[in-house]
Simulated scan of single mutants.
Amino acid sequence: MPTEVALLESHALRVEQMGRVDVLDKVKSLVMLPDGVHVRTEDVARYFEVPTASVRRLTDRHQQELISNGMRVLRGSELQSFHSDMMSLWGEGEVGSYPQAATQLRLHTRRTVLNIAMLLRDSDIARCVRTYLLDAEEDLRESVASLDRRVTRVEGCLVGVGNALQELGPVLSRMSHRLDVLDRKLDITHQVVGAISLRLTDVSQDIARLDTRMDDVARQLKDLSRGGLG
Rank of each mutant, 00 (worst) to 15 (best):
D216N: 15
E142F: 10
V44C: 02
E49K: 05
Q80K: 15
E16Y: 07
M32E: 08
A117S: 15
S10P: 10
D25S: 12
E138T: 10
L172K: 13
M1T: 10
G91R: 10
A12P: 04
L147C: 02
I125G: 00
P2M: 05
G160F: 06
V44D: 00
G70L: 04
L24Y: 08
E92R: 09
D122V: 03
V144M: 08
I116M: 04
H108F: 08
L224D: 10
D43W: 02
T3K: 06
A101I: 08
S146P: 06
D135Q: 04
R121A: 01
R75V: 06
D124K: 02
S143M: 14
W90F: 14
E155L: 04
L210V: 11
A117L: 11
Q166A: 14
V161H: 04
D206Y: 09
Y47T: 01
R153H: 12
V39G: 01
G36F: 09
R150C: 01
L24Q: 06
E4R: 01
V39K: 02
V192G: 03
S29R: 05
R14T: 03
T59P: 01
V23P: 03
D43G: 05
K26N: 09
R111G: 04
T201H: 10
V55L: 03
A117P: 12
Q80T: 13
V31Q: 04
L165C: 13
R111T: 07
H11T: 15
T41F: 01
S81D: 13
L221R: 11
Q191C: 10
T59V: 10
V193R: 09
D135T: 02
S197F: 07
I67P: 01
E9A: 08
L114V: 09
Q220R: 14
T189I: 10
L179F: 09
T201V: 07
Q63L: 12
G227W: 12
T103S: 15
D85R: 15
H38F: 13
Q104L: 12
R61P: 00
L158C: 08
L30V: 09
Q104M: 14
R226E: 06
V44P: 00
R75A: 04
L134Q: 00
S54H: 08
R178E: 11
G91Q: 10
Q64C: 11
D211G: 13
R219K: 14
R111I: 04
D183P: 04
A145R: 05
M118V: 05
